[in-house]
Each structure stands twice: as structure tokens, then as C-alpha cells.
Amino acid sequence: MKKRLIAMLLAGAMCASIAGCSTGTGSTGTESGDESAGSDGAQYHISVVLKTLAAEYWQFVEAGVNAYAEEHPDEVSVEVKGPPSETSFQEQLNMIQTDLGDDTYDGYIISPLQQDMVANLIADTEKPVIALDTDIESDKVLSFVGTGNEAAAKLGAVAAVEAAKEAGWENIQCIEIAGVQGDSTNTARMNGYKAGIEEAGGDFLEDEVQYADATATRAVDAMNGIISRHPEGIAIICANNDDMAIAAAKAARDSGNENYANTIFLGFNGDRAACEAIIAGNLTMSVAQMAYEMGYKSVEAMVQALNGEEIDPVIDSGSEVVTPENAEARLATLDEQLGG
């Protein structure tokens, strides 16, 4: 505690010596609080390590994290960072390890790239940890804040069946272009798609799931294979992410097979690119993750935990289905969240 007080006093002196202290931005992330992050006397100082800051999705998570801190400057300050990409495994582990050894932090919010490795790193910490977006199997984790992937996918699948009916399909079959086989998030979304399609009266062709490693290039190959096997058309193609769904829809258009003209292409993420594709008619719908809300809720939960309050072990940040009817409104919301 004494070290932290001294650090805060020194940081305060530094702020007084320059022309004001404002939100700092570096190559690894941002600090946010009042006019100076982590050095303005906020009650708690939190480390937030994301999977990366280079992708749009994580920029929305970061915006939500900073928004809570900016709304509660006397309560919490945050330092957000992330490696250059979601394959920079060692760089993220180094960031986490460094912050775990920093006595100025009161808690840690982590989006792990390697769950097992992160679980090992946090095994000896006595400070609270919250897992964000991807869970960490560790007794040190107080709560997981993220999308309920199965429930969200089910919501999208039900909407896709209704859209297929409106498009004139009588035999409503669905084939999924999936992500990485064995990945827990992919499995949860697949289970949700299957449950939603069948609950709404459709037929999920489980034996024809196409694994495309979450990449658009492989999704094109998968879609071409589907068209070859089903020249009569398939009512619904659902995908593990928007990039694959958009690529699959383009492959169907490029094929010239008119039996796919009314196919419902369902993606997952609901980011800016997906909204624009829906507005342009290049994607039918997407299940939107609430990345901004995810970041916001993670800091809110951490503050509650540090205040001694009980928090739920799982906090669902929510989801919604983006369609041509609400895509423009969703896009406007995304622009507002990033300050656009």
C-alpha cells in the first residue's frame, strides 16, 4: 500500500510538471481515467490485456473499457494493451506476466489467446481476475464476461428460418461453414445454430458441416463444394463469423447458380463490415456481439468485486440479430461508440 501511495504521489508530481495530463495512447494501448489515467487518485487501477488492438472488434471492446473508466474517474483507472495480432501468443503472455508483477494494479481483465498458458500465469496471483470474451479455466477467475455464444447463435438461426420462409423456401435446410474444429467457441455457436434451426422447423445438416478454420478463403472453397453437391440450392448457409458468411455469399453469386439467389446467409459478429454488407445486399443477416458492452461490463464487474460485492460467474454481454431493417441503425451505434 505504501509503495502504491508513493507511486501515486510521484505520478501526480509528474502531471503537475507538464501542461496537463490527458489520455495517453501508445503502441500497446491506452490509459483512461479522469484527465490522467492511473495517476489521478482513482480508487482502483486495472490492467486490461486484450487479444489485440489491431482488429475492429477489439477496438470496440477497448472503447467500452475506457467509457466506464471515463464515467467513473474517481473510482477506477484502466490501462489497456494488446499484442499486434491474435497470433502474437508470446507477446501477450509477456504483457500479462509483466502486469502481474506490477504492484500498482488492483485487478486484471484478460482476453486470453492461450487459455492454458494464461491459467498457469495467474495461478499465484492474489488479486482478482476477470476473463473477457474467452473464458479461463482457473479458480483465480471471478467471472467470465462475454457473449453467450450458443444462445446468440440460436437467436440468429431462428431469425434465419423465418427469413427463409419469407423468401419462399419450403424445404428449409441449413449447412454451416464452421471455424476451427474442436474450438470451444465454434462448438457453442454450432450447437446454437442447430438448436435454433430445428426449433424453428428447419433441418440442420449436421453431417455436412464444412470446417473452414474461420477464414474467408477456405469459406469460398467450402461454398463451392456445397453448390456442387446441392445444385438445387440450400435455404440457409450459416457461418462462424461474418468474413466467412460474406465470402460464401459472394461465391454463390459468382457461381451463377440462380437456385442460390434467395439463400439466407447468416454471419456472426455484426461489426461495421457486416452492417455495410447487409445494407449493400451482400449478406442477409448477422448475429451481433456487443463488444463495447463487453468491455464496459468487465470493468463494472471488476469494480464491484474490488468493493467486496458478489458478481455473477458468467456475465452475458448480450447479442442481437442485424438485418436489412436495422443495419443502418446498428452502424450508427457503432460509429457513436468509437466516437465517429
Rank of each mutant, 00 (worst) to 15 (best):
H230I: 02
L100F: 09
T98P: 01
V80Q: 00
F268R: 10
N186L: 00
E35R: 12
G26W: 13
G192T: 06
I6D: 06
A163V: 04
I278H: 07
G339A: 10
W58G: 00
I311R: 11
A19S: 12
A245R: 08
T134D: 12
G201S: 01
D116F: 02
G196Q: 03
K140H: 11
E35H: 12
V180G: 03
E31A: 10
Q59V: 02
T98A: 13
D183V: 08
G82L: 07
N307Q: 10
F265E: 08
V161C: 05
V321S: 03
G233S: 00
S298I: 08
A239G: 13
A252V: 07
N186C: 14
S228M: 13
G192I: 01
D135V: 09
Q92D: 06
Q59I: 00
N307D: 15
D99R: 14
P324C: 04
G295Q: 06
D34Q: 11
N191G: 15
A273I: 08
D124K: 14
L100C: 10
G64N: 05
N269V: 09
D183E: 11
M290G: 03
Q59A: 08
T134I: 14
L331M: 11
V314A: 11
E70V: 03
P83G: 08
G281K: 10
E206S: 14
A216Q: 03
V145A: 05
F89L: 09
D139T: 15
A69R: 05
V299T: 06
A195L: 02
D316G: 12
Y260E: 08
L266E: 10
E62F: 00
A332G: 14
D254S: 12
A195M: 04
K194N: 06
Q97R: 15
I227E: 01
L155G: 04
A273R: 13
G233Q: 08
A16G: 13
A288M: 05
E35S: 13
V80Y: 00
G64R: 11
G179I: 03
A119R: 11
T30D: 10
E336F: 04
A247F: 01
S27V: 13
T125Q: 05
D213H: 02
S143D: 06
M290P: 00
A239Q: 00
R272E: 15
A273Y: 00
G295K: 07
D254F: 00
E328K: 15
P231W: 03
E258K: 12
G201R: 07
G20Q: 12
E208C: 00
C21I: 05
L331F: 00
D139S: 15
F60R: 15
T217R: 10
N191C: 05
T25W: 11
D207E: 14
G295V: 09
G101Q: 13
E208W: 04
G202S: 06
Q181H: 04
